[in-house]
Nucleic acid binder design. Structure first.
Lengths: 226, 226
DNA sequence: CCAAAAGTGTTTGCTCTACACCCATGG
DNA sequence: CCATGGGTGTAGAGCAAACACTTTTGG
């Protein structure tokens, strides 16, 4: 074929994997086993195969790193500065993933001996390549997205209490919210439904809710104009 | 370098170029001069050079196709299905551009003999590759973006009347808006300022405004919750 | 019975929406 | 003086924000 006359490059996908742990928003990072940046922390990822779509490459990498399937995964942005990888031209399609708090992460996978660990987003190490930039872009996008879609549920287990969602929003957005107003709003939005279960523990048992799969979970932004 | 062990691919950029012409939102398309899809209309674009960033490649292509520099240009999405180009693996980073209604488009450029033409978005031909999908995604994103940022000004000349902005919004969103409410809102948003000029023509002359460069042109979306 | 977290309404102010008439200019 | 588009205010409804006490359970 006549594509060879055009410059050929390596393409990678990288996945910013967010989860809530211990009352903070955390990101899964992988320690590099080779040069360049050997030993430094980086956003997990890998190269796109010849016959593989970008989405497939991303979910394959996600499952290789964490063992997870079927979690929320969305393309974020494509980074293509010529000098961003010292080995040569590598263009990276960044994705972000939201994994439920109770998801069983298998941290050391067969195919990858890489050491991985969770880091709270406020206390990130210096990352390899341009990964600090990529991560802060992902974080901005997550916060933004949280404000006009119901994507926050992706970070919760299947059954959750109203206080748990509220805490989720408070953690990610970094604000305190009024309990009564929050409940009125979320129940009015008609995107969750009560279940027959309750969570017991300290204090009065709480009603467990779950996300409604048929919910239209997007808010019309208030237009700048009309 | 050791990048050669990873699959290498061709990378292209394509630019969906929007403008307002004759009371409708139009897109600039290029007729393909070679196979595959010879003679069919396609989104203009080209391959990314070895030492060129994605943004640079996009603005180079835009200026080759239209002669324009410095117009609004934003990365849209990256399309990477393995079979989307019959010649082989080509991953495309799509951008979209908004060009002012009065911009002088030089339609036939030296380096490209390609025939280009404007098409209203409601009456598009069948396009080459997966370009119909890409275009409808771009359109959705433009409409969305219009609702919470002041990006609509990118489609207007430097000086414009309030009626002209209102018509811009009506055309793109496909709705009718109330004149008084629209004006109250846009003036309250503090993103435009009156100038010393008026536009004369039929009827009473209209005050000309311009976009304030220091304006914070983003609306906080109403949160789903709080 | 005490500690802990769940659950529940009302009032006030603001924002959005609907709506109709006069004004300035050119022909 | 007439046609054309530009420019202006107000009242009513719906939404958002502030605010404190009672309920249910486990220990």
């Amino acid at each position: 074929m006549n594509l060879q006359k055009y410059p050929q490059m390596a393409l990678s996908v990288e996945i910013i994997i967010f989860a809530l742990h211990e009352q903070s928003l955390q990101v899964l990072l992988a320690q590099r086993t080779e040069n360049p940046y050997q030993g430094q922390w980086a956003i997990p990822g890998g190269f796109v195969q010849e016959d593989e779509s970008l989405d497939k490459a991303a979910s394959r990498e996600l499952s290789e790193k964490t063992g997870l399937e079927g979690v929320f995964l969305e393309q974020l942005y494509t980074f293509g500065e010529p000098q961003r990888d010292p080995r040569g031209r590598v263009v990276t399609v960044a994705y972000f993933a939201l994994v439920p708090a109770d998801a069983p992460i298998r941290e050391n996978n067969l195919s990858e001996a890489a050491h991985v660990a969770w880091f709270p987003v406020e206390r990130l190490p210096r990352l390899a390549f341009d990964h600090n930039d990529i991560l802060s872009y992902a974080l901005r996008r997550l916060r933004n997205k949280l404000e006009y879609t119901a994507v926050g549920f992706q970070l919760l287990p299947e059954y959750f209490t109203l206080s748990e969602i509220q805490r989720t929003y408070e953690i990610i957005l970094g604000v305190r919210l009024d309990k009564r107003n929050f409940r009125r709003r979320i129940l009015g939005a008609n995107i969750i439904e009560p279940t027959m279960y309750k969570r017991t523990g300290e204090g009065r048992p709480a009603q467990l809710y779950r996300f409604r799969l048929d919910a239209v979970a997007e808010v019309k932004a208030r237009r700048l104009f009309p």
